[in-house]
Design a protein around this nucleic acid. Sequence first.
DNA 1: TAAAATTTGTACGTATGTATC
DNA 2: CGATACATACGTACAAATTTT
Lengths: 254, 254
Amino acid sequence: MFTPVRTRSTFEEALRQIADAIRAGDLRAGDRLPSERILAAQMAISRPTLREAIKLLSDAGVLEVKPAPGGGAFVRSELVPSNLLEERSKLRISEVSGVLEARRAFEPRVAQLAGLYGTEADFEAMRRTIALQRQHANDRERCLQLDLRFHIWIARATHNSTIVAMMRFLLHQLELAWDMGLRGGPEETRWAIAIHERTLAGIVSGDPEAIDAAMDEHLSFLERIWEEESGRARLRKPPDFLLPHAQRSVLRSS
Amino acid sequence: MFTPVRTRSTFEEALRQIADAIRAGDLRAGDRLPSERILAAQMAISRPTLREAIKLLSDAGVLEVKPAPGGGAFVRSELVPSNLLEERSKLRISEVSGVLEARRAFEPRVAQLAGLYGTEADFEAMRRTIALQRQHANDRERCLQLDLRFHIWIARATHNSTIVAMMRFLLHQLELAWDMGLRGGPEETRWAIAIHERTLAGIVSGDPEAIDAAMDEHLSFLERIWEEESGRARLRKPPDFLLPHAQRSVLRSS
DNA sequence: TAAAATTTGTACGTATGTATC
DNA sequence: CGATACATACGTACAAATTTT
């Protein structure tokens, strides 16, 4: 009933915010962070505390700091070593399939809302993400990060902050699931890129059924990988009401 | 891009865990908490720190501590004063409608999964919650708490921890929305109870379409209240793909 | 060339909260 | 329950570095 409390210190929280901004693509390589005093004010923390976060990111090669007018902290690498974020929480094997089920329940609607309310700027960000993914198709870690970024952008395209927050949580769980072995090889990576393109095309078209179909392909893909790679942890079969209409009832073959 | 970091101290986190257990109904009035040493061990904190949390809850009349063999901390009141949880985060008016939209996107599927995987124990907990709600129909604060508890149980009935966590977040946002004026009078309270009964009946029956219809009634109800009470903050009209099939396309009348 | 402006770097005292005994 | 020890965060002041003027 009660679980270990884990409090994060202030500088860890500041570090997480900066790292998240980089991983989500809000800060790109070469970008300059606000000056320490301004950033500390925005985060409502003291400058020494902020400096502790910056120092760790700097030591890890994520940031580079130059003391000079026009200087400051610059993004050097968009890859944030995972040991900096020390995820205390682990997922149990049996919970991985639950993450996929939760995506089934949530993400198709989110994508449909993205098709309804997304702007050209949102779509352009998704296109850029896919392009980067194709560019780094052989760097698996990078591709996983870009996959998260793509899905965050789907949520952002809804222009609904609650949905964005829920999606961030869901993708965070998914990241933990990846650490448990849910990951494909380069073959799967190329396939994932193609699926992203179809998903985006559906969202841009705004056709809810096309979006549903693309998301179904996306999620079926992940479910298949998880079943193959883990074997033992069997998945609850997605029920009819979580599938696109075209695939429901007797038509289901898989 | 960056937001104020807010760290919670250890005893605040412990207090939140205890308060959440009470509000969710896992600890009922009269129940006895584990002994301080055991509870501190479960939470992986020191005993004095745990005592600080207990003292605040005791001073607020939520717990009663009896120093005796066989004594301990007992739940005295299931109503936790909100000033103990000091919610720093506020919702902007424009974000309230987003919370309802997120519920539209998520909760109907969750309820359908609850119908598929829920056990008799889950249904019984929901029945008890509704009974309590009818019993305290005139105590609005109490009713709101029981409303949250009912929806948490829907999520729990899915037996999917990721979904439970997402629903907790969503309901937390909803709680903030209530503080912004989304609340009805006693008339609405009775109506809400009736809707809960229909929702539960749908879940117990396991019929996805019945569940969808009940949830739609539930959410339409909230949307109407919000439109009436706030007036200015207009709601994005729920798109067709977030409605039950029976109500889609030309058939929509509201 | 030199001074000024801007930004990081360093140090210390204090307050608060947590863990240990 | 109290007292002590320790870690973390804060505020402030000043030093150092480098570009701009």
